[in-house]
Simulated scan of single mutants.
Amino acid sequence: MGFQLAFTPSGRLTVVETAADDFALGATTAEAVERQLSRFAHALAADQAEGLFRLATEKIEFALSPSWAFWRELAVRYLAALCHTPEAAPGAVPDVPPPSDAELTSLVLNVPPMPGAEYVNESALSGIWEDLDRWVRKQVAAEGGTLASFLERHAPLWHQVGRVCFHLAENRHDADHPFAFLATYASGVRGGSRVVYRPLSEALREFAGAKNKSALVRLLTPVHRESQ
């Protein structure tokens, strides 16, 4: 037995059972895959947004089938945007920039075959994004802590995204200074299991070029604070 995601005319995700799923298992057993997908299915049935949050934040050690991968990618994009927002007061979440019209159109053009694929349009994707955003805001407000503490508790890897990281690196070309700090920033999470680090200079060029002031502020404020 397998599970496939479907999209209803009312704009909701639902899970349908199939005879089998097309997964690249790797080192994961078919039974483990079925258990994890079953957890996702139950979470989606209880609360669509919570199910998507789990789908994006849990470690997955097998290649998802196209329908699962598509909706996971949308949730991952939301989390990436969320993690690049500036710090806010406890219980609050800053405005999360929605996908651009071009991004939504690109997603629609790449909807994989699935039941109800014809109902997936730009408006429907915006609705899913907004639903996920409302759920995150509700959870952060209920816990009363900061967004950072919420992510640290429920999505530890994503807690690092959007932050500057300093790595102690060997400096072989200077005997007087054998070690140096390498500045990077965490741009996202790959496969739900590994934080992606990029040179800090790339972040500065990317956000400055896109005029993404809020992301720059979030990125550089902790560095400025620690330098005082």
Score class of each variant (00 low, 15 high):
78 Y>N: 08
78 Y>T: 12
78 Y>P: 07
78 Y>R: 11
78 Y>V: 10
78 Y>L: 11
78 Y>D: 08
78 Y>G: 01
79 L>I: 00
79 L>Q: 03
79 L>W: 04
80 A>E: 11
80 A>K: 13
80 A>D: 05
80 A>S: 12
80 A>P: 01
81 A>Q: 07
81 A>Y: 11
81 A>N: 11
81 A>W: 05
82 L>F: 09
82 L>S: 07
82 L>M: 02
82 L>Y: 08
82 L>T: 04
83 C>I: 03
83 C>Y: 02
83 C>D: 06
83 C>K: 00
83 C>H: 00
84 H>A: 12
84 H>G: 00
84 H>N: 12
85 T>F: 02
85 T>W: 02
86 P>S: 00
86 P>I: 08
86 P>R: 04
86 P>K: 10
86 P>V: 06
86 P>C: 11
87 E>N: 04
87 E>L: 05
88 A>I: 01
88 A>F: 05
88 A>N: 08
88 A>M: 01
88 A>T: 07
88 A>E: 03
89 A>Q: 09
89 A>W: 05
89 A>H: 13
90 P>Q: 06
90 P>K: 04
90 P>D: 02
90 P>G: 06
90 P>A: 02
91 G>D: 04
91 G>Q: 01
91 G>T: 10
91 G>I: 04
91 G>M: 12
92 A>Q: 15
92 A>W: 14
92 A>H: 15
92 A>F: 15
92 A>E: 15
93 V>T: 10
93 V>E: 09
93 V>G: 01
93 V>N: 12
94 P>Y: 11
94 P>T: 06
94 P>W: 09
95 D>H: 11
95 D>S: 12
95 D>R: 14
96 V>C: 05
96 V>Y: 03
97 P>V: 01
97 P>M: 02
97 P>R: 12
97 P>I: 02
97 P>C: 02
97 P>K: 03
97 P>S: 01
97 P>F: 01
98 P>N: 02
98 P>R: 11
98 P>H: 04
98 P>F: 00
98 P>G: 10
98 P>W: 02
99 P>H: 01
99 P>S: 03
99 P>L: 15
99 P>D: 06
99 P>K: 06
100 S>N: 09
100 S>L: 09
101 D>F: 10
101 D>S: 14
101 D>W: 08
101 D>H: 05
101 D>Q: 13
102 A>T: 14
102 A>C: 11
102 A>N: 13
102 A>V: 13
102 A>P: 08
102 A>G: 13
103 E>D: 12
103 E>H: 00
104 L>S: 00
104 L>T: 05
104 L>I: 06
105 T>L: 15
106 S>V: 13
106 S>A: 15
106 S>Y: 14
108 V>S: 02
108 V>Y: 09
109 L>E: 15
109 L>D: 14
109 L>I: 09
109 L>H: 14
109 L>Y: 10
110 N>A: 15
110 N>K: 12
110 N>F: 10
110 N>P: 10
110 N>Y: 05
